[in-house]
């Protein structure tokens, strides 16, 4: 049953590839920045993050371990699906990869630049961030700015800070932004305000921003959680395409296990802040899922597993 299902998935992906091939623009590769030599894309070493819950009524304040000694690495551009029940630390892990959350213990390196180490942001965290694209569930585009400007913000980490401050993008950069928007299929909406776009279009805008960034790694935090199935599929297919064509590593947190198995090649499962599964997506079976989510997963997913 598993094999059948995986076969169907690859057919869908291949179809998407073919569609994209025709519309793909060569400007992107021409204007692309030189790739720095790299040994490891992501390195996470024994990261722990503890939140202190505030005292509520009679309950005293108590520490809550969101991440408990998490380690993993990505040596080539993979698609990692980060799964686990709510509160298992998925978002915390993803956000600490870009240094939006600082963990007390452990090290995070992205493309050999230290994002954070032992409770402190690295010296070159901004350069590290410039190589990462971030896509959030609560669409993190700036609503009142045009889609074009939002995608152009991907340039901020790359150009002179003052030029970025005043938004003085040069002709090459403007063309690069339009090419990225064309790549995700929403170039015709470039002048539209981000908050007038649909959820799926906003997520594709965020992917365009990552492409403009020339990101080597895309971090997506529940990117499809508030999208309808059709938009969700397009966003996931786009992530697959960017990963396979542009060799961009993708780490995506997902609530839907079937999305993770369909679109990712490696799965990391978190439970109570610890990694309980790290392996190929197609090796993730019912036994592991029961271990991650509890035995009720069987009734929640019957028919699909």
């Amino acid at each position: 049953m598993c094999g059948e299902w995986a076969g169907a998935a690859s057919v869908t992906v291949a179809k998407a590839m073919k569609l994209r091939q025709d519309s793909r623009s060569s400007v992107l590769t021409r204007a692309g920045w030189a790739n720095p030599p790299m040994s490891s894309l992501v390195e996470v070493q024994s990261v722990s993050k503890t939140y202190v819950q505030k005292a509520q009524g009679h309950k005293p304040s108590r520490p809550f371990k969101a991440l408990d000694g998490v380690s993993f690495s990505m040596t080539r551009p993979e698609r990692i699906g980060l799964i686990g029940p709510s509160g298992s630390g998925k978002s915390t892990l993803l956000r600490s990869l870009s240094g939006l959350i600082v963990a007390e213990v452990g090290h995070v390196k992205v493309l050999d630049k230290t994002v954070q180490s032992a409770g402190r942001l690295g010296e070159d965290v901004r350069e590290a961030r410039a190589t990462m694209g971030m896509i959030a569930q609560q669409f993190n585009l700036v609503g009142r700015l045009s889609l074009f400007t939002n995608a152009a913000l991907g340039l901020l980490g790359r150009i002179n800070p003052w030029r970025g401050f005043f938004g003085l993008w040069n002709a090459d950069e403007k063309q690069r932004v339009m090419a990225a928007l064309d790549h995700v299929g929403i170039a015709e909406r470039a002048g539209q305000r981000a908050n007038t776009l649909s959820g799926g279009q906003q997520q594709r805008g965020a992917i365009a921003r990552a492409i403009v960034q020339d990101a080597k790694l895309i971090l997506a935090d529940e990117p499809v959680a508030s999208l309808d199935p059709v938009s969700a599929r397009r966003v996931m297919e786009l992530l697959v395409e960017v990963n396979e064509r542009q060799k961009v590593g993708v780490i995506v947190t997902l609530h839907q296990v079937d999305y993770a198995r369909k679109y990712c090649d490696r799965i990391l499962a978190l439970k109570a802040g610890k990694i309980v599964y790290d392996g190929p997506a197609n090796a993730l079976g019912l036994e592991q899922l029961k271990d991650i989510y509890g035995s009720e997963i069987e009734s929640a997913y019957w028919g699909e597993i």
């Binding site: 971030m134 585009l141 700036v142 901020l156 971090l219």
Partner: peptide, 14 residues
């Protein structure tokens, strides 16, 4: 959106 800009490598002023 603030985190979105921060995550691209922008500065505080950005």
């Amino acid at each position: 959106p603030i985190e979105g800009v921060r995550a691209t490598g922008g500065t505080r002023l950005h």
